[in-house]
Design a binder for these strands. Structure first.
Length: 199
DNA sequence: ACATGGATTCGCT
DNA sequence: GCGAATCCATGTT
């Protein structure tokens, strides 16, 4: 059931697509929060001008060059933590960004987490965006480097057999600065899901 | 040492 | 459609 390292040790585009429908689990002391992933994006190596790896292995991005299945969390706008999973073989820089999920367990805790931030509005769809997803699941920069293939607290499980959905593909959100790379069709979401960040 | 700007979200115009 | 919130990684001097 649990996604192992070989799942992540592939091309980030394939991983991002295959993550749709999978469950992201955060085990707490006596509870757990689970999100069904409905939206992802892929980020590549130095040739992807939207990727943090575009400057090579800097202190922040070097984790993207490391082993697959490791969580890469970084702070954006000084406000939100965005959750990525390192993809590809060691030495190859890439990652999949989790952009949105449907909270299927631990919603009370997820909402409590969201209420901590004065920059999110509480509504009926709590994890509809990458900043809100991380908040809801209780993921912050302290989780950077966590091995999702080994951690007892954070891991993913496979999309249940028989789950049917269509995948929509678009360009990535918020990367207009990325010149030629901004038009890469590397955003994926479950078609008709009410939990995606945008249509 | 300094300047720049962002893989976001929300509220106001 | 636009700007603010808020911090730190990165490039430049």
């Amino acid at each position: 059931m649990r996604l192992d390292r070989s799942f992540f040790e592939r091309d980030a585009v394939a991983v991002a697509k295959d993550l749709l429908g999978c469950f992201f689990v955060q085990n707490l002391k006596s509870n757990q929060i689970v999100g069904r992933i409905v939206e992802t994006e892929a980020y590549g190596d130095a040739t992807d001008l939207a990727s943090h790896a575009r400057f090579g292995p800097t202190p922040r991005s070097q984790i993207m060059f490391g082993p697959a299945g490791v969580l890469y969390v970084y702070k954006i706008y000084g406000i939100f933590s965005l959750a990525n999973i390192v993809c590809g073989k060691t030495g190859e820089a890439s990652a999949a960004l989790i952009r949105a999920a449907e909270i299927v367990a631990g919603e009370v805790i997820a909402r409590r987490n969201l209420a901590q931030s004065k920059f999110v509005k509480l509504n009926e769809q709590p994890a509809t965006g990458p900043g809100k997803f991380s908040l809801a699941l209780g993921i912050d920069t302290g989780h950077n480097g966590t091995d999702l293939a080994a951690s007892p607290h954070l891991y993913l499980t496979r999309s249940p057999a028989g789950t049917e959905f269509k995948i929509a593909t678009t360009t990535r959100i918020g990367v207009d600065y990325a010149k030629d790379s901004k038009d890469l069709p590397w955003r994926f979401y479950i078609k008709d899901s009410p939990f995606v960040s945008k249509r």
